[in-house]
Amino acid sequence: MIFFLMALLLHIDIVSTAIDSQYCSEKVTIVHIVVCLKQVPDTTEVKIDRKTNTLIREGVPSIANPFDLNAVEAALVLKEKYGATVTVISMGPPQAKEALRRAIAMGADQAILLSDRSFAGADTLATSYTLAQAILKLQDAGGVDLVLCGKQAIDGDTAQVGPGIATRLNLTQLTYVSKIESVDADGKHITVERKLENGVEIVRGNLPALLTVVKEIYKPRYASLPCLIESLAYEPVVWNAKQISADSSQIGLEGSPTWVETIFSPPLREGGVILNPGDENYDKEFSGLIDTVKKIVAEERSKLVCS
């Protein structure tokens, strides 16, 4: 653990020197940002159908996936900084327009709904394919520098769609981004902070890139009244399967090899130990902890030897 932290610190150190050296003039470098946004049932109301092990979405109010709104906000901040255009896309039924309008109220430039009966029943594989096809179309129309997604959707919690799109489109994949440090002046690289379980990692990657963001990145803004009212009348563009040249075997139910065996809540993970150098038994507890760690390491090692 300690070694790991040290390694991490060292890593951060190295990267941040790298950043300093090229953090100078800021020209317009990001021209077009695409944000993927999903409409999800409000999970405070989600029910599971015990027979089919799928989510019951009927009658449950839908909201824009909260992490996706963080992504929209990040895109808007970049828009303000670099003058980029922000396009929001969503795959879903016509009702998903409501979630898209929310992004428009916040300040996104345009919204596209991918809607077609044949998209229904998609798992993460088919969803990432469908979204990737739409992004391809946007790329062909004039390029996409950055794709932003929420870290995961709160209904399925898979966190697979963003990485799926990145892989399909061969974009640099940067997940769990908590901060966008900078975009290179030449428009070739982006530097971000990734929030990991054990700390923070600063990474530089090539553009175009796909980022999935955590909520710490930016709090979604509260739209002004004129923007909100204007958005209520906004009609998103709708693209169907044909319009994104989708291969029918890769979309919807047909393109979805996933089946759900069971759904259950995992047991709560226990919290870690916090030792405070000011505490009375600090020394004792600290050496006790070190002993435990040593023991675990020894055990793991012996397992390796055996196999």
Partner: peptide
């Protein structure tokens, strides 16, 4: 007046 920016109607 509403709680939003430019919120008079």
């Amino acid at each position: 007046k509403t709680g939003r920016e430019n919120g008079e109607i």
